[in-house]
Amino acid sequence: MSRISVFAVFVIVLASCNPSNKPGRSVKFQQYFVEGEQLYTLHCSNCHQKSGKGLGLLYPPLDESDYMQENLSDVICLIKNGSSGGLVVNGNKYNQSMPGIPTLTDLEIAEIATFIYNSWTHDQGIIEIQQVTKMLQECNTGS
């Protein structure tokens, strides 16, 4: 391959990259985001959709969510432990139970959180594994 075509491929690859490619984001952020996107597609997108829009009043949206904005530690706990009591997002009550995924590691949860908190309307920056570990220790699993 000539130098020009290698360059062209490189440009195309760069251009096709997802919104993680924001200027000023660290390599670590990019890694978290890309891994998080794959985990999200595997574990979350069935219900919450790839678009993050959820489904009707059955599965709450993530793309615009006051609940996410106000309850980071609850979201971290939800991903690990699930929820069955119902919750209110953007003024709507959702009552389907969400299964937790207890097999996820703290790192994987940090990656998912970094993805969802920096996609669609969100721009929260990286959510580090240390933060996640601390939040998980404080989950209220009794309720």
Partner: peptide, 16 residues
């Protein structure tokens, strides 16, 4: 079934 978490949500998205 309503409590199905695997393929049903996708099916319901498509049926919608």
């Amino acid at each position: 079934f309503t409590s199905c978490r695997t393929i049903c949500p996708i099916m319901k998205t498509q049926m919608l």
